[in-house]
Nucleic acid binder design. Structure first.
Lengths: 338, 338
DNA sequence: ATTTGGATCGCAAACGTTTGCATTTTAAAC
DNA sequence: GTTTAAAATGCAAACGTTTGCGATCCAAAT
């Protein structure tokens, strides 16, 4: 039933030559005469020879697969990143394995362990929200596996990183709100132990300071899902001195805000402006369409993969590179014209 | 620099026993005395031994990775599927490799070739839109690699399949429109050579027939993106006898329709109803929220992966199984109350 | 006729496992 | 003290490659 894979020695027998000659002929080694090369390659084609990658990997001690660990798969930003990774990996002849940490430290631990004994060539990682210990990533490095962090980077480990320009993105967004006349800008944000949260928060704060607006603690909230936003926003609107704009840490949250504002009978953007962060189709489905900071996950994925593959190939960029991919403010209907 | 991986023979030397004993001790073979087992396992832990999967795979002629080919990565339905696949694969100890066909036959060909020489244990595939030849998939089967199709299945190849209940989903959706008073229901659809397109179309047609509504060719359009819908819909609304409802083959298209209808100054759902297909966050961001047929991609992915892994493990389900995962109509704001 | 010296090719080891079989050790039975 | 069976271990081949080195061959140069 199970037809055996045809191997190099099958070809050798067929042609009455040695396996070494076949091996060399297959890769056009100069030692082999054009005649045998031709013979071997024809025979290989005829028998439908496919090199056994496992044997090859074992022999060479190499591996052509890279792993990407992603907190969530069904997520515009992260799936864009994976797309970018797959794209360059494919072109470079690498296979990509996908793992989902589910925002869980435990799971992340299991994944990294399985990666090191799968002997992958490299791994691209973004921390889970839970993660606050980093030995498992150090262990990856210790096992001579290349590692680069993207987005949710790990400052404890020295290795390459690629991040999105959260600070500048947030700053630009808030400045846009200010330029279009907003004075009291609320900020909905994730827990601040995450780097990205911290950076966006700083962008928000610095934009306010730069334009001499007061920063008010009561306008900053921990709120990063649509559901939370739908619950929180009515209360915020009922404040004595409610905000005239909302800046949300992601688009899902922004859609929740938008919904709540409409429910309250207020107009967007005439009464209140909204700006999101993240990008994706969601923003276009809103009415009015959502002004948001586009993150270019695809670019993040591509540059991270390039960095990793370069390291695997031994191309050195200096010991420790840190790439930042720019964000872009997409001005649409939830903010006023200037 | 590069500290060598510790192997089974390292342990053997350390303990002055043979590699075979170490190998057996590590897996608690009954032939080995509890004393040596304990010794070996302690030593393994101490030296941080990690089995070399490549060597193991080569020896056993097996492989614990499965591949999933997906037409697009940044896509709610497909990423949900991938999530499901990763979930069960992880639990079963399999790694998943991800490939994106980009809806291109050429790319699909390259992918399948690289898969067969990577000797993966199995592959999950959904056809690209371009694909109309199937030898490359037959080739996978010929190389003793397990194969199961999901969603965009291939009827030319006999193997397991898991699909979404397109026919029933479409039928239910259209019946819902009819029950809420719609008489002239337009259908926006992908090119009909795709199975899913064909099935949804049949569901649409049969619902009309069942309720004695005329089927009118001029109400059926090839249109499956937001952009196309934004361009086409105004023309459709300008017809002599315009439709009072739209059924779209996916939610992106539905959002385009919604946009165009609002632009035309008509009300949804009072004047015109809309129903989409696909699910995801998009539907909730719309105003009003989009009534749509939820596809449960996560379930599709899970059952497909289970099927595949069972086949890999040699569990036989009968020769050729065909799973259908049910859809669910999510009634929201773009259709009227009954 | 002998020596060179490329040009071709084959031998065998190596990568890290697993496993059938042979071998040694142990301990019990005589 | 010998035999015997069972328990514990080791030998070596195998999985499919690659590659350093040595072997062979043939033509040209001496």
């Amino acid at each position: 039933m199970a037809k055996k894979q045809v191997t190099i020695v099958d070809i050798a027998k067929e042609l009455n030559i040695s396996p070494s000659t076949v091996s060399r002929a297959l890769k056009n080694h100069p030692d082999i005469s054009k005649k045998t090369v031709k013979l071997v390659q024809e025979c290989a084609k005829r028998l439908n020879y496919q090199p056994n990658i496992m044997a090859l990997n074992l022999r060479l001690g190499k591996n052509n697969t890279i792993a990407v660990i992603v907190p969530e798969i069904v997520h515009y930003f992260f799936s864009s990143i994976v797309k970018g990774v797959e794209e360059v990996a494919f072109d470079e002849g690498f296979n990509v394995m996908l793992f989902r940490s589910k925002e869980s430290y435990e799971r992340e631990l299991k994944i990294t362990n399985s990666l090191i004994n799968a002997r992958v060539a490299g791994v691209l990682a973004s921390l889970s929200k839970e993660t606050d210990k980093y030995e498992h990533f150090q262990k990856i490095l210790d096992n001579n596996i290349q590692l680069v962090f993207y987005d949710r980077i790990c400052i404890g480990i020295i290795t390459d990183r690629v991040v999105v320009d959260d600070y500048a993105g947030a700053m630009t967004a808030v400045e846009h709100l200010i330029h279009t006349g907003c004075k009291r800008i609320a900020f909905y944000c994730s827990p601040t132990h995450l780097e990205i949260s911290k950076n966006r928060r700083n962008g928000y704060l610095d934009a306010l300071r730069k334009h001499k607006l007061p920063v008010e603690k009561e306008l900053m909230f921990v709120c990063d899902t649509r559901e939370q936003a739908m619950e929180l926003t009515p209360k915020v609107l009922a404040m004595d001195n409610p905000p005239d704009a909302f800046f949300a840490i992601n688009d899902h949250t922004a859609t929740g805000i938008l919904y709540a504002i409409k429910q309250a009978g207020l107009r967007v953007p005439e009464d209140i402006s909204i700006c999101g962060f993240s990008g994706g189709d969601l923003a276009l489905a809103c009415d009015p369409m959502l002004t948001t900071v586009e993150q270019h996950g695809y670019e993040v994925g591509k540059t991270a993969a390039k960095l990793l593959i370069d390291k695997i190939k031994g191309v050195t960029h200096g010991q420790f590179t840190n790439r930042i991919v720019k964000t872009k403010l997409m001005v649409r209907g939830t903010t006023r014209k200037v």
